[in-house]
Every structure is written in C-alpha cells, then in structure tokens.
Write a protein that binds this DNA or RNA. Structure first.
Lengths: 200, 200
DNA sequence: CAGTTATTTCAGAAATTACTGAAATTTCAG
DNA sequence: CTGAAATTTCAGTAATTTCTGAAATAACTG
C-alpha cells in the first residue's frame, strides 16, 4: 500500500470497519480512498494505491456500484472508467440508509408478515407469534418514521436533528395549546399508566 | 434442527441476517430462538433445538452476553444457566443502538479526530482532511442527536416517532410565532447557520 | 475428600469468503 | 476487418471465520 500516511490511516480504518459490516475489507478501503481523493480515480490507480489485484478492484467497484455508493465518470479522450463518491455527505447517508433498509429491513418485515399470517399449531407457536408481532410493530414504526423523514430536504433534516429531544418540550407546549383549545375535557387526567407530571 | 416450522423460519432468517451483519449465523439463530421462547432455555436445550455443538452454544452465548442481548437466569434447585432476551423490544433496540455505536461509531470518530489533528504534508492530504472533517461533522451531529434522544422514556420516544416529519410543520409554526414575537426583522432572510433560540 | 454435573477453552477440521492470475470479453481506433 | 486498451469473468488458491470434540476447569453434592 502506497499512500500518504494520513490517508492510509483512514483507508485502513475503513477496511476494518467494512469487515465489521457485511462489506468486506477491500470494498471498504476502496470506498475510503475514493472518498478522500480530490479527483476521480481509475482502476489502475486504485490497484497502485492499495496494492491489490486488478480483478479484485473490478469486483469491488462493481459491489460499490450496486450500493450506489460510487459514481462513474469519464474524462474526454480517455476511455478508462473513473470513479468517485458523491460528495454530499448527507446524500451518502441517505443512500446508505436506503440500501441497508432494502437489504436488511424489508426482507425481515416480509418474513415476519408471512409467519404472522400462518395458523399457530401449538401454544409455543402462538407465543412466538406474539413476540414476532411485537418486533414487527417496532420495525414498522421505525420504517414509517424513516419513510417520512427521508423526504425532508437536508437543511430541514439537519435542523430537526440539532433540536434533538428539545423537540419534546415543544410537543408539550403544543399539547397545552391544543387542550386549551378544547377547553372542556381534563385532557391528560385520564388513564395514564405513567404517573410523573413533569410540567416545566 | 428440531423446531416448530413457524419458529424455524424465524430462526433461519435471523441466522442469515446475522451473517449479513458482523454477527455470525449461529449467534443470530440463538438470539432468535431465545427471543421467541416463552421460558428461558439452557444450553443443552439450544443444542437440541438448533443441532449444533455444545461448545458452539457456549461461545455464542458469551458473544451475545458481551452485546448485552441476553440475560442469564437461574431456576431454584437447578444449577444450570438459563437464558432469555429482555422482553421489551424498545429496550432491545436501545441496547443494540448503544452497542453498535460503541463498536462502530465511536472508534471511527476517534480515528477521524486523530487524523484531523495532524499537520497535512501535501495538498492531497489537506484535501483529504477537509473531506474527513465533513464526515466527522455529520457523524457528530448524528451522535449528538442520538445521545439526546436516547434519554427519552419509551412512550415519549414512540410519540416522537409517530409524528415523523409532521414535526416540521410544527417547527414552521414555532418559527412564525417566534418571529411574530420579535416583530421587527424579516426573520429568515439573514444567513443563519443555526437557530439560536428555542423558546422555552 | 471423590464423584457428578455444568461450563469453558482451544487446537485443529470444516466451511465460507476473499483474492488472484489467466483467459475471455468488450470497446474503440484505424 | 485487425489490433490495442480496458474491463470482466471465473476456476483455483489463500485467508479467514466458524464450528467441533476432547480436555480442562469450575461448581456443587454427599
């Protein structure tokens, strides 16, 4: 491997991280390298930089393309393929989320749904189904939230993030306003398992 | 493998999913099995159910314990160890998030910080650093949000989720109110990197 | 203490995954 | 068309990961 030390640390780290995800080491390294390169790189430059075989680079780039994590560029009068990563980190995040959802979450949801449709043949199975239903419910809530939030423009999303849980204070305010509007009902008094009024 | 069909599907699916994460197949299967079992299971029951070696079960349970994803139980007059999963799915989610952060996000942040401290030795390195700074910034925003939100009680969190991006409408309302309060300025016109006020 | 049961460790076998080099394919120029 | 350059494919090998059986350790009983 033949890289400026500071870049090498980054590339190596991503290689290790890659293997901790489903991604393999080489794929992680190539991604990292492209991410920090000022110009698009061609396959042979990657071979040179990382010291791996040409065919490995070819396969790994293909893998990255199926993840939509790299984009192919062409230079005039050069028929080699050059590669970069999208440069907006928020966009990268979105892509990553989308792909992981597609590969991990959606199949799980569909397996769960399928199982939940079936008739349990015993108490054990019946119990299992209730557990799976809980899991299904949680995942569905999360994906609904995700589907909803991913539509936001980056600026708004960033804003939302930076509010963090402060948002709940706002919600309380809203609740108050709404129940003021309603006037009649004692609003929050009714059956709430959770006792602690924490009214600011 | 010796399981009711409906449970077997679930267990097999989690096995496959496991290998797609860093977790391996057996670990995934054991987790799934414990998750849907009405009673805690001992190691030999797992051996029996999944048809794997006793030693593999022992190692995999240890792995699950380091993730805090299983809990050990003891029955009276029985010195074997029994295992279950926590049964609140929200709690499981929190644990998972926490562990993955610890293993994946935190080390990445620290590598990035370290690299960003160093003096770049060339333009290439300088450019790489700016890219890494972008990534670092994004990750930091996300983890700040996470640290903030994870403190919420489940009920509140679920509430927040179910609002999804509707929340932004509320934010707009708030903006309007706030700028009404201020009266003078055209409010949003000026370049504001971050909304300083949060009402409260 | 010896004997019994439960659990862990670990060297090596088995299985899986990643990588390479050589050959095949594609793409383009003349 | 031929030939050169770029890329891909793939069979075989290398490396890594997972899993097992046997042995070691630990925890308890009487």
């Amino acid at each position: 491997m033949n890289l400026p030390p500071l870049i090498q640390s980054f590339v190596l780290h991503f290689g290790e991280m890659g293997s901790r995800w489903g991604i393999n080491r080489t794929v992680g390294q190539i991604y990292a390298l492209l991410y920090v390169s000022p110009e698009p790189l061609c396959a042979d430059e990657i071979v040179e930089a990382l010291g791996i075989s040409r065919s490995n680079v070819s396969m790994s780039l293909r893998e990255l393309q199926t993840w939509n994590l790299v984009v192919l560029k062409h230079l005039p009068n050069d028929r080699r393929d050059f590669f970069t990563t999208p440069d907006d980190v928020w966009q990268i995040l979105r892509t990553l989320a989308e792909e992981r959802k597609k590969r991990e979450v959606d199949p799980t949801l569909s397996v769960l749904r399928e199982i939940l449709m079936q008739q349990p043949g015993s108490d054990t199975e019946r119990f299992a189904q209730t557990r799976m239903a809980e899991m299904h419910g949680l995942i569905e809530q999360l994906t609904n939230w995700y589907e909803d939030v991913k539509k936001l423009e980056t600026e708004r999303l960033a804003n939302l993030l930076s509010l963090g849980s402060k948002i709940t204070r706002l919600l309380e305010t809203k609740d108050r306003i709404v129940s003021l509007g309603r006037r009649k009902a004692p609003a929050r008094a009714a059956s709430r398992p959770e006792g602690g009024e924490d009214g600011g």
